[in-house]
Amino acid sequence: MNDLMIWTEKYRPSRFSEIVGQYMIVERVHAFVKNKNMPNLLFSGPAGVGKSSLALVIAKELYGPSWRENFLEMNASDSRGIDVVRNIIKDFARTKAIGNVPYKIIFLDEADALTREAQQALRRTMENYTNNTRFLLSCNYSSKIIDPILSRCTVFRFKPLSKDNFSEIIKKICKNEKLKIADKAIEALFLISEGDARKMENVLQSCAAISQSINGKLIYDIVSLAEPKEIREVLSIARKDFLRARNKLLDVMLNHGLSGIDVIKQISKEIWNLDINDERKIMLIDKCGEIEFRMVEGSDEFIQLEALLSNFLEK
């Protein structure tokens, strides 16, 4: 059976030479692997630009077929507490690396999801296992990582993939999957994915389930099917009827499994499309920022969203 049914995995690079984009970073990291001498690394950058892929390539190139025994992958936003993380790390780091590389690698994805306290604890864990373990952290914003951890890592900042990078990946996939794709459609894929290759590959795979020939319209149709547009509706109701808007918002959030932060992100994008004067737009953007800040500090994200929504009421 083909075990590569999900395209983001099927087309994930497994060698340095297969990585598209981030060439400067790939070159530096490749040198570490050649010398089998690697510092702790922190990959920072937006989603879908190759952070996890590069981490996996490092493991595969460094350890060969036995990479799974020497490479522990953990996702900070799924592992419940730092205690869990510490225990798993302890168990993993206790045994020696298999093969001729003197250390194992612990890959901690979405490290910026860890609280400051958890990061402090992680820092001590990192110190305890320096002899036989290297840490590889990835995050969207390095500003959310505390200084003591930053100072123990070599930090690489990933950039969004360029249009050329995208085009290269898309053409390769389409050739392999025997898809026909118009140049306009490549452009559309690039625009809607905002440099996020994971999203692009997901969209492309859905499109391929519908037609072998892919055009711009199909791409936009798929994306609007997959992404909730009701937030726009909620905002337009909120201008007249707060009660109805907040009830609708709750339904939308529950139906699509959206978090408070997801909703704020969408609202702040939608504000620019509203039919209101520019000064009000800026005022609302300011409110978005303030409410996002309070959400991080507060406890009930729905109350924060209601507070934001109430600012859309037109007096």
């Binding site: 999900i6 983001t8 995995e9 994930r12 989603a47 879908g48 996890s52 996996l56 992958e73 996702n75 900070a76 936003s77 799924d78 994805d109 979405e110 999801a113 996020d196 994971r198 999203k199 997901n202 969209v203 795979q205 859905s206 389930a209 519908i210 798929i222 099917l225 997959a226 992404e227 499994g257 978090s259 997801d262």
Partner: peptide, 28 residues
């Protein structure tokens, strides 16, 4: 999905799940 796509379940729900659902809707 998260377990095989090297991502958190939150991320998988947001970025991969909706597209997988479309594929199922098309009986593929």
């Amino acid at each position: 999905l998260a377990a095989i796509t090297h991502s958190s379940s939150k991320k998988a729900l947001k970025s991969t799940f909706p597209y997988i659902k479309i594929i199922f809707q098309k009986n593929k």
